[in-house]
Structures are given as C-alpha cells and as structure tokens.
C-alpha cells in the first residue's frame, strides 16, 4: 500500500469514527494530527466530503487554530511559553538562547528534522516559570543550562 493510500484509509477510519458526533470537525482534525503528525492538504477533500462540509470550511478551521499544522513537524516539538508569567522569570532571554541553540525561529524545524519550535501562550505552569512543553512532557523553571541538557538528552540536536 502506498503512503497516499495509507493516509486515505487512516482519514477514512477517523471520519467514520467521529462523523455521528455533533460538531465532529475538531475531534477529526485532532485524530488526524495525532496519527500523522500534521494535517496534510491532501486530507482536506476527504474530510470535507465525509463530514458534508466544503473544502474551504475545513481549510478555514485548520488555519484558524494555532495547534493544527499543515507541514510535518520535527521529531520533537518544543512549545516555548511566551506569556507574562514566564516573561517575569526571564522567558525572553531564554527564548533568545533557545532560538540560537536550535538555529531556528518560531514555526520552523531544524535542518536535521529533530526539533520544531512553536510559541505557546501559557501552559498553566505559571508557578514554575519559565515553562515549556516538549511533545507531551512539561518542564518548569527552565534555564539555558537545563534547556541544553534536555535537548542533548533527547539526542540529535543541531
């Protein structure tokens, strides 16, 4: 089975699972992103026809929400908090360090495909600022040194 066929069958399975729910589009997009890492443009027509929506409606929803991505992420996605509480504890300096350590800006992926960097506006970890999330793990009271340690531990850094 080609990658494209595989993707079609994944999307079909997901839309079948959710289409009876009221307001199924967000749960479908979450499931697609969980399965594929992003929501490829090729999936949009399948999702639209299964849920009886226009392609424009589906694309509009994907582009509205910061969390849904239309390009493949790196192996690990780093969500770095930019919000006030983290700023009060040095998030801006940390942000400069993170970007230079990874050699990328927000919404970019390192050349070797290891890390994607995304801004996030609050992780609810404000009592342990500055905070970040890598994949499903949350980290608190991050310093430049602990960031480097974590990234090194995760392996393939730039």
């Amino acid at each position: 089975m080609t990658e494209r066929d595989n993707m079609h069958s994944i999307v079909q399975e997901i839309t079948e699972r959710f289409k009876a729910k009221p307001g199924p589009l967000l749960p479908v997009l979450h499931a697609v992103q969980d399965a594929l890492g992003f929501v490829p443009a090729e999936c949009v027509p399948d999702i639209a026809s299964a849920l009886n929506l226009s392609r424009a409606e589906v694309h509009g929803v994907i582009s509205f929400y910061h969390y849904f991505r239309e390009t493949p992420p790196g192996k690990h996605t780093i969500h770095l908090c930019r919000a006030e509480s983290c700023q009060a504890m040095g998030a801006k300096q940390l942000e400069v360090h993170v970007k230079s350590r990874l050699g990328i800006d927000y919404h970019e992926t390192t050349a070797d495909g290891s890390f994607s960097l995304e801004p996030v506006y609050c992780l609810g970890n404000c009592a342990c600022s500055p905070a970040m999330q890598i994949d499903h793990d949350i980290y608190g009271r991050i310093t430049a040194e602990t960031f480097d340690e974590i990234v090194n531990e995760l392996g393939e850094s730039a």
């Binding site: 967000l26 929400y65 849904f68």
Partner: peptide
C-alpha cells in the same frame, strides 16, 4: 471532553 486547539 472536547479539546480546543490553541486559540485563546
């Protein structure tokens, strides 16, 4: 439970 998608 329904999940949002990062929109404040």
């Amino acid at each position: 439970v329904r999940l949002g998608a990062g929109a404040y």
